[in-house]
Amino acid sequence: MVHARISTGAEQPINRDGAVSQFAGQEGDLVGRNADGDWVQADAVAEANGGAEVNASGVLAAPVTDPTDFSQEEVRVIIEANRELIGEARVGVVKYGIIIENADEDWGFTPGQPVYLGASGAYTQTPPATTGDIEQVVGEATGDGETVFVDVETGYSNVA
């Protein structure tokens, strides 16, 4: 599992959007909107999100937690004060202008080449090849191949 995180200012006032999340994810996870306009995990293949592909709209600017995972009220108050929550309208998503770094250092991307949305919201340099999968560029590999300059393209296509 990739340990992706934003390595540049997550508090940037531009290029972000706030909405309700239905996805308990981590900072840097690729997300898109479902039919209700809520944030869900982006996915290039029809395996999650009720069997439908979901194009990426950006990356989570902070972790999103499901408050029902915590039964003790004290713990819940701490979580609510420090994390974004499922069902709350304060989830931040960034579309471009940040660098995601892979702390696990297992991408090995080729710098200067496009990075695509993959299965289950993964970052990949392998364009999808299966009919119906989403082909969408979400950024460009930089540095030593363990960082991605995020620039989520609004346009995408489905593999024919």
Rank of each mutant, 00 (worst) to 15 (best):
N102H: 08
V115S: 01
V54H: 01
G18E: 14
E88V: 07
E74I: 10
F109M: 00
L30Q: 02
Q41N: 13
G32N: 00
V40G: 04
E53Y: 07
S57E: 14
G58S: 06
A81W: 07
W39Y: 15
A44D: 07
A48K: 05
A48Q: 05
D17P: 00
D104F: 10
P63G: 09
G121F: 02
A19V: 01
A52N: 06
E73C: 02
G18C: 12
E105R: 14
I79Y: 06
F23T: 06
S57R: 10
D29K: 09
V54T: 06
A48L: 11
E80Q: 12
V93L: 11
A62N: 09
S21W: 04
E74S: 08
D38S: 11
I99S: 03
Y96Q: 15
T68K: 13
G121S: 04
E88H: 11
V64Q: 01
D66E: 12
G121M: 00
G28V: 00
T68V: 15
V31G: 05
W107A: 07
F70Q: 04
R33N: 05
G118C: 01
Q72A: 13
N55R: 13
Q113E: 15
E74L: 13
N82K: 12
E73D: 13
G108A: 03
Q113C: 07
E47A: 11
G92Q: 10
A52W: 02
V59F: 02
A61L: 08
D69E: 12
F23H: 11
E80D: 11
T68H: 12
P111A: 02
D104G: 12
I98H: 02
G37A: 06
V115Q: 00
D29A: 08
A42E: 04
D66C: 02
G50R: 01
W107E: 03
E84H: 13
T68G: 02
S120N: 12
P111D: 08
A119F: 10
N15C: 14
A46N: 09
P111H: 09
G18K: 14
N102G: 01
E101D: 13
G87V: 03
P67H: 06
G50T: 07
V64Y: 00
P63N: 08
V77K: 15
Q41T: 14
N102D: 14
E27S: 11
V45W: 08
V45P: 00
Q41G: 03
T65M: 15
N55F: 08
P67L: 12
I78L: 15
V91L: 03
E47T: 10
E74M: 14
L85T: 10
Q72T: 09
A19M: 13
I86K: 07
V45I: 04
A19K: 11
A119G: 08
V115C: 01
V54I: 13
D43A: 08
T110C: 04
D38A: 15
A89D: 14
D69V: 08
P111L: 08
Q72D: 12
D104N: 14
Y123H: 04
V94T: 14
P114T: 01
I98L: 03
G108M: 05
S120E: 15
V94R: 13
A44Y: 04
G112L: 06
T110Q: 09
V75I: 15
S21Q: 05
I79L: 09
L117D: 00
W107I: 00
